[in-house]
Design a protein around this nucleic acid. Structure first.
Length: 225
DNA sequence: AGTAAGATCCAC
DNA sequence: TGGATCTTACTT
């Protein structure tokens, strides 16, 4: 297979619905420089999240499902910025904001392969015993690339403008991947009467993809529909 | 004001 | 399987 070739992402690349943009982010490269340390990750697993009023159906799993709040404000802004939120009070998770400005949407970066700066990533993730686990899972991913909530929420991955001593840049594959797998999102709760959206996308066979887990109540919804 | 659950991870 | 640890949303 040919070596990956990347080009800088543009806002236009990210202006579509998250569910359409998400699969095109697979194989993309996110490069961060935090406190002078560079880490680059090749994205292997992502999830799309819509907001209230985004797309043809409401998204029960989205932080923006109830409308705009102080926490999810970045999701409503210009595409190409990164929405960094605190998960379970501990982990900083990273999303690429999608959709037109004024409409909420994002793609959660769930896992990736560290292709540059493995030493720095290992320092940030002492619990990782193998390179595979450096960015395998959204919390681990956030730790590996060094972006933290609330300091780096809203950082621009298109211009690479610095924010609190950090920069981030997103580059897409010049040739999108031909094979992409999709399925239900991880850890998203089921809500009675709503569908389970297959908005998780991953590179089939890649070992850095995280393991799947049903969200609370999601299995019942899935079986009922 | 109190409480339960959450786009999670790790050690027991 | 439960604890860490903080924000949000829903209940008293």
């Amino acid at each position: 297979m040919a070596r990956d070739v990347w080009r800088a992402a543009t806002r236009a690349d990210l202006r579509g619905l998250p569910a359409d943009v998400a699969p095109r982010l697979l194989g993309a490269r996110l490069t961060t420089v935090v406190e002078g340390e560079t880490v680059a990750v090749r994205l292997t697993e992502v999830e799309a999240y819509h907001g209230r009023g985004t797309g043809p159906v409401p998204d029960p799993g989205s932080h923006a499902r109830m409308g705009r709040t102080a926490r999810n404000a970045t999701m409503w802004g210009e595409p190409g910025h990164l929405y960094v939120y605190l998960s379970h009070g501990i982990h900083s998770c990273v999303n690429v904001v999608c959709g037109p400005e004024g409409v909420a949407g994002g793609v959660l970066l769930r896992a990736g392969q560290v292709i540059e700066g493995a030493d720095a990533a290992t320092r940030r993730r002492p619990a990782a015993r193998t390179p595979r686990d450096l960015a395998r899972g959204p919390g681990r991913f956030g730790d590996a690339v060094g972006l933290r909530h609330p300091l780096h929420d809203g950082i621009d991955a298109i211009t690479g403008a610095p924010l609190h001593g950090a920069t981030a840049r997103l580059e897409l594959l010049t040739d999108p991947l031909a094979e992409v797998a999709s399925g239900p999102r991880v850890g998203v709760a089921g809500v009675a009467g709503t569908a389970v959206f297959p908005w998780r996308y991953w590179i089939p066979g890649d070992i850095t993809v995280s393991s799947f887990r049903w969200g609370r109540g999601a299995r019942e919804v899935s079986e009922a529909t």
